[in-house]
Design a protein around this nucleic acid. Structure first.
Lengths: 354, 354
DNA sequence: ATTAGCAGTCAAACGTTAAGAGTGCTAATG
DNA sequence: CATTAGCACTCTTAACGTTTGACTGCTAAT
């Protein structure tokens, strides 16, 4: 039960136009730039109905129309033109990803940078969880008399190291041997498998019990909470380039919102949408609560080897170039997947430069 | 060859006043709020001479005076009142530092957060170099067939790990043994000692030669370049609270400046000032070049155990509460030094809560 | 259903005026 | 000679009224 094809065309014209100009669109510009075969009066009639339907609004009686959140929604889902990245944009992406990346962190940080550079918007990248990552090995290294460093090697890369504290003073040799034993115990399993307490706690040699328990607890934490909270933000200043934030009050509200990273986290998780959908588009009062500003968040889930390593995307005014954003996110998604020829040392294969 | 005591009093009144109001200061407010025993006419005369001396300026003929960069300079060096932190401010600092911090990164990040929270300004913290840190141990852990992870334990904390790549496939036992040997070789030395190539390359067992060389190169890099480039920024949105950035253009320029972290780095290094001076105050065109905006940067060097671990401070409009900023930086400096009772596991000693 | 044409509306731009804040100068004072 | 009262002068800011021009909505014709 949609709207007529002509209405769709007109709506698309309004959104397309408004995205670049950020000014109310009049019937005459639609006519001259998009639909020269229709009279402006006809377009005016259609605009009036589109306004009744909730897709458009007028700042005041004698002004043009601007799209509502509904209009953007429809635009993204149906009307938006598919765009290819330009040669130079492709090159920018390639340059960012043509060197080695050892840490998940680094990949996401690069992703955020390149997204911001190409879209000219503020970008964000999060590491939501490593639940699905597979543990390849666990290494334990003695640091001081009662602390040891635990390194978890996964199929995605090396995890930010964690400290464990033990009451006793064990030797380096003890940790070396323990590493081998404990590494074997976890090897091949995903973090997710340790969500339930009592799995795989089979026959732990009593001498390693304490250490094993500490590391088990560590891994369980990863499985439950995901990664220690990390959001990378790039290009905050890009926000101020947008005319909707020429009002400092609005800009401040938005910047504050972006800075409180815990409010940002839930936005990249798609609610309701099917799990396999890679793209997540939120338009309007994104945070739900009253405090969250009117804005749009477009993110994509990125995978290496079929395993989700995180989400990245943009945050900005509702009026953004969705078409460009989507194509950038899409292309980067492919590029990241391609990164992964060797594990866990995610190199970019040389033969890529065909 | 300074200015008269009365002029200093008046100048201080202007700066003090302007810092809170951000509006041109008239002779009458100085009289009523600061120097009731002088007539406004006398103050006007003094203001006129102070303007000739380059300490003040008028936005237009019939306006009050605002301080120049020179005035702030004098204010900071001489006129500024010494302030004590309030009870609640002290508590904020304590709360930030009352849990364990294992990594240098973490300390600086916390420092940036607390500075921003108390001063209500954008803060920054950098890790300029670890040249003076002492190496306690070096651990090498096998990751994949041809890569290994190197962990350098210093008296300040654990360094962000680095990857080394070796042509051959060595066993875990090999790395374990190599760790012991190589750890011994570097133990007790500071990074600085490896600036010159040929020191301490005494008798390396030929079997470890290759690995040793790789790690030696790594440590030399730390010695020369310092830490891999890291600047933490907190509270960018605080910038927009300042009236000088109610103009979006100015705000954008400033945010962009803050975001290009490589421009920020040189600002925390004091040029010309004696090495032991902990405080670094820059006022005016801080970056030197034309592109850098008019602003002020106040940073302090922080040390643990007499070793410099980094610098942190604030960046904001020239009109900032220097007195408060200096006292905050000072107090935090002391707090950080106190953190270090155990090494390298920088715990906050329990007995601190007297 | 479409469209030409026109009256009506409203924001933004402009010019004018008035108010008010603050100075510099002059002349008087101790 | 330093200080100060007093006043004329300057310049910004706010307020107000007017004009301009951009669009629309409606009506009547095709």
């Amino acid at each position: 039960m949609g709207i007529s094809a002509r209405k769709e065309k007109i709506l698309q014209a309004v959104v397309d136009s408004y995205i670049v100009s950020c000014e109310p669109i009049s019937s005459s510009v639609i006519q001259s730039n998009y639909l020269p075969d229709l009279s402006s009066a006809t377009i005016r009639n259609e605009l009036a109905t589109l306004e009744e339907l909730g897709y458009l609004e007028q700042p005041h009686t004698s002004a043009g129309r601007i799209p509502t959140a509904e209009a953007y929604r429809l635009y993204v889902d149906k009307l938006m033109p598919k765009r290819k990245l330009s040669r130079s944009e492709l090159n920018i992406v390639k340059q960012y990803f043509n060197h080695k990346m050892t840490e998940i962190d680094e990949i996401l940080r690069s992703t955020a940078k390149v997204i911001s550079e190409i879209t000219n918007l503020t970008s964000l990248a999060v590491i939501p969880n490593v639940k699905d990552a597979q543990i390849n090995d666990v290494k334990i290294v003695k640091l001081t008399s009662n602390t040891a460093l635990v390194i978890i090697v996964t199929n995605l890369g090396v995890l930010r190291d964690s400290m464990v504290e033990l009451g006793e003073d064990f030797s380096e040799e003890y940790f070396f041997a323990a590493s081998k034993f404990i590494g074997q115990a976890f090897k091949g399993h995903t973090f997710k498998e340790f969500t339930n307490v009592d799995k795989i706690v089979k026959d732990v040699k009593s001498e390693y019990k304490k250490l094993f328990d500490a590391i088990f607890k560590l891994i369980k934490n990863y499985a439950v909470d995901g990664m220690p909270f990390d959001v990378a933000i790039e290009g905050s200043s890009k926000l101020l380039q947008q005319p909707e934030y020429s009002n400092v009050e609005k800009a401040k509200q938005m910047l504050e919102f972006i800075e409180t990273k815990d409010k940002l986290m839930p936005l990249v998780k798609k609610d309701g949408a099917p799990e396999d959908m890679r793209l997540n588009v939120r338009i309007g009062k994104v945070g739900g609560g009253e405090t969250s500003p009117e804005c749009a968040v477009v993110t994509a889930s990125y995978s290496v080897n079929g395993v989700n390593i995180g989400d990245a995307g943009v945050i900005g005014p509702i009026r953004m170039d969705y078409s460009k954003v989507v194509s950038v996110l899409d292309y980067i998604g492919k590029t990241i997947s391609d990164l992964n020829e060797e594990k866990p040392n995610l190199n970019n294969p040389e033969q890529d430069k065909k």
